[in-house]
Amino acid sequence: MKRLLVAFLLVVVSIPFMLKADKSKPRVNEVAPVLPYSYSQVLLSSPGLRSPAADLLFMNLCYLTGNDVFNRWKERKFTEEEWKRLIENVEVIEKLDPYYFDPLYYLGSYVPWKVEKNRELLLRINSILLQGNRRVKDWRLPFFVGFNYFYFLGDKVKGAKYLKLASQMKGAPSYLKLLVPRLYAESGRINLAIAVTYEELKRAKEEPVKKELKRRLKALIAMKELDRALELYRRRFGKCPSDLKELVKSGIIMSIPEDPYGGKFYIEKGKCSVWTTSNLRPVKEPTSSR
């Protein structure tokens, strides 16, 4: 009994040293970079465990993306190179577990918004999605492909082709069928965006995600209203207004709606369409106390 007490005391005595050592221990940078995984290495290091390996890779990917979304890394966002690696990792996951739907969904619904300027990556995403669609029969995959062509790549013909493909698949919502022909007629970027956002909102479970989607929906609807007002203005005056205030002055709208992301709507001169300074991402609000 005495010996046990002494042993316990010794452990207690050792604690301050452990704490001291832990404090002065050299630390790795807390920013976790996106690592490129190789298919053959993952495959060989997990005998008989292809699917769990794919699951773990996807978890890792979600974790990293979450850090990016919620600004856990303070001043840092993913670089273009890291987005490229993320896309390649999804490709590895699909090779390991070719019937896994969720990574494809992630790739189609979220990633294009982040790499919208990079045609090469967008095309790569589309090819992965189409590759996946050979096995995973889900209407959302061609829907994403069509959306990408339409919204980011500006290829309306291909976009409509894949949207049509999606609308014909099992489980596709009925409004998609209505949407496709109208999209053929109109330029329809914002309409499409609203449709996608609405679809995501229906699927979302977690409250913060829902809130985010609702905010985007609100912004998109505001932009759609403004676009319609611009169209009216152009029809009435035969030219594009130089500022949104002119729309209010001419009495087409009552007031300029607020961007829920904290930016300001403005007119893109060349295209005569509405966009926002926030780029649909939360703007760091100038501290209101100032």
Binding site: A54, Y100, F101, D102, Y105, Y106
Partner: peptide, 11 residues
């Protein structure tokens, strides 16, 4: 994991 939790649990 995000998405199909049953798939991952089964894996």
């Amino acid at each position: 994991v995000a998405g199909d939790t049953v798939k991952v649990a089964m894996d």
